[in-house]
């Protein structure tokens, strides 16, 4: 896995100074105005719009999908994804997103909704039906140094650890 320092450097270099102050202020205003679960849903909708504006290139298989995803992220300087099929769920680790640097790490709880929305919408574009959902997970205890945002495509259930209800 990439080292923390490398990821720090990468994230800092790919978050425009021109927008950083603006996005920080925007995020603070959002936080004051809405509860975090509403903000997370809002960010998911923004993510879905992003996915609609950035449809993936042609793919048939998971490998090709992963390739198309990273081509899209690379064009936007928005980090990169490592995808693993874990049989009972699909794990997506997103590295180097400028999202949290732009919004502030204290906004991560709801800012992550953007990635949930983007990946969810891309899966819907890929033909995903109802019954599956994308959830951002907290870092696993056995991988504390991992700086990625871990998302999982899983069977939807009633209990939602992310609190998205």
């Amino acid at each position: 896995m990439p080292s923390d320092r490398l990821i720090d450097y990468y994230e800092a270099g790919h978050c425009s100074m021109q927008w950083r102050g603006f996005l920080h202020a925007l995020a603070n205003e959002f936080s004051d105005a809405l509860p975090w679960h509403d903000l997370r849903r809002l960010m998911a909708r923004i993510g879905a719009r992003y996915a609609a504006d950035h449809p993936l290139e042609r793919y048939e298989t998971l490998d090709e999908w992963c390739f198309a995803v990273n081509r899209c992220w690379q064009k936007s300087d928005f980090g990169f994804a490592v995808v693993r099929d874990q049989n009972r769920h699909l794990e997506i680790r997103h590295y180097g997103s400028p999202l949290f640097l732009a919004m502030g790490m204290d906004k991560a709880q709801w800012a992550v909704g953007f990635l949930e929305g983007v990946y969810y919408a891309w899966f819907v574009q890929a033909g995903m039906g109802t019954g599956l959902e994308v959830r951002a997970e907290t870092p696993e205890a056995d991988n504390p140094g991992d700086r990625s945002t871990c998302l999982r495509l899983v069977r939807a259930s009633v209990r939602n650890p992310a609190g998205l209800e």
Binding site: R41, A44, E116, G117, Y120, T130, G131, L132, E133, V134, R155, A156, S157, V158, R159, N160, L164, E165
Partner: peptide, 12 residues
């Protein structure tokens, strides 16, 4: 599912 599904995903 971990718990029987009765509602759609919030992201639905």
């Amino acid at each position: 599912p971990a718990i029987a599904e009765t509602t759609a995903s919030p992201l639905e």
